[in-house]
């Protein structure tokens, strides 16, 4: 996803001279081609994320569409107030890019586990929150944000994830789009961010009938499309590499509740949230190992039982 992001950003910067990239002294072997092609629209501000967010606000006030790039919690939690007040309150064209979402930097420890930022960021007005599911989505989100006017957060994974959307990717994205990956049966798995490949593999390997939807946007979410998902399934499973509190599953629950409260939903599907259970993990391990530790796994029974109840 990292590579897809930077390659697409270079493509966008070739045709859009407003694009400016700030890095917080991170991005070795990633950002160099951009820096070489566009030295006037690139700056390494050093290891200083609060300053980076403020500089981005200043550049955006002068008409630039700014990307700030660093790892996980650094361009997000470290400068949360600058994001809220300088960038979002002033409604500026700044895109905050965090690489290594979730447990992508598994064994580097809790400092590098980005597992709370979506909850914090999605409460901030004006901010669009994105978590693409594969390199093709990362590419599409990069194009989307380079044309969108206003602040965006983009959580991307690491390098080397396989593509899920084939062969031509999801195409161009509209704000809040939901991407259907497969459509089958009464159970729908709603995935955001880099969990997508795990979900599609699980369904395929277990030969299960289930719909799969990828959510590159966590805020906003196209409510009409989501309503149709609520209406056409009896069971939903949300999965995310984030704390259960205030994350993606919470966002889906909130929207479902609002439909139910307005009596617009005739029947309310059950919803299982797969997310991190309010815990830190202090063991070494790969991304896959830590996901298992945190219980970010699908259960065959959840899907099969739901199907048998319907019958």
């Amino acid at each position: 996803m990292r590579t897809a992001f930077i390659n697409q950003l270079i493509e966008e910067a070739k045709v859009n001279d407003k694009i400016f990239l700030l890095v917080g002294d991170l991005g070795f072997s990633v950002v160099e081609p951009f820096a070489e092609l566009f030295p006037d629209r690139y700056l390494n501000v050093g290891i200083a994320e609060q300053n980076m967010a403020g500089i981005a606000a200043g550049l955006a006030m002068e008409g630039y569409n700014v990307y700030i790039y660093s790892i996980g919690n650094f361009p997000t939690l470290r400068c949360m107030e600058q994001i809220r007040y300088d960038i979002c309150y002033h409604n500026l064209n700044v895109n905050i890019v965090a690489v290594g979402g979730g447990y992508a930097y598994g064994s580097l420890g809790a400092s590098h586990h980005a597992t709370e930022e979506i909850g914090m960021l999605r409460t901030i007005p004006n901010l669009v929150v994105c978590a693409p599911g594969d390199p093709a989505e990362a590419k599409a989100i990069t194009t989307f944000t380079s044309n969108y006017v206003g602040p965006c957060y983009i959580r991307i994974g690491k390098a080397g994830e396989p593509d899920v959307h084939k062969p031509n990717g999801p195409g161009s994205l509209m704000l809040g789009d939901i991407l259907p990956v497969s459509k089958a049966g009464e159970v729908a798995i709603l995935s955001t961010g880099a969990m997508l490949k795990y979900v599609t593999d699980f369904v395929e390997n277990n030969n299960i009938k289930a719909s799969i939807y990828s959510f590159p946007f966590i805020k906003p979410i196209n409510s009409e499309k989501l309503f149709n998902i609520f209406n056409s399934h009896t069971k939903l499973i949300t999965i995310e590499e984030h704390q259960a509190s205030a994350g993606f599953g919470s966002a889906i629950l909130e929207i479902m509740n609002d439909f139910a409260e307005r009596k617009e939903l005739t029947s309310i599907p059950s919803l299982k949230r797969i997310a991190i259970p309010d815990q830190f993990y202090s063991v070494a391990g790969s991304q896959g190992y830590l996901r298992e530790q945190a219980g970010l796994v699908l259960e065959k029974g959840d899907i099969l039982n739901a199907i048998s109840i319907e019958k």
């Binding site: 629209r41 700056l43 200043g58 550049l59 006030m61 002068e62 107030e81 300088d86 002033h90």
Partner: peptide, 25 residues
């Protein structure tokens, strides 16, 4: 008024961003 300010320690970074933009342009 260029910016809202109330939380301390914000405006100098933004000012640096503005000054940088002027340099680049």
């Amino acid at each position: 008024v260029e910016i809202s300010a109330g939380s301390l320690g914000h405006a100098l970074s933004i000012s640096g961003g503005l000054a940088l933009a002027a340099k680049r342009k």
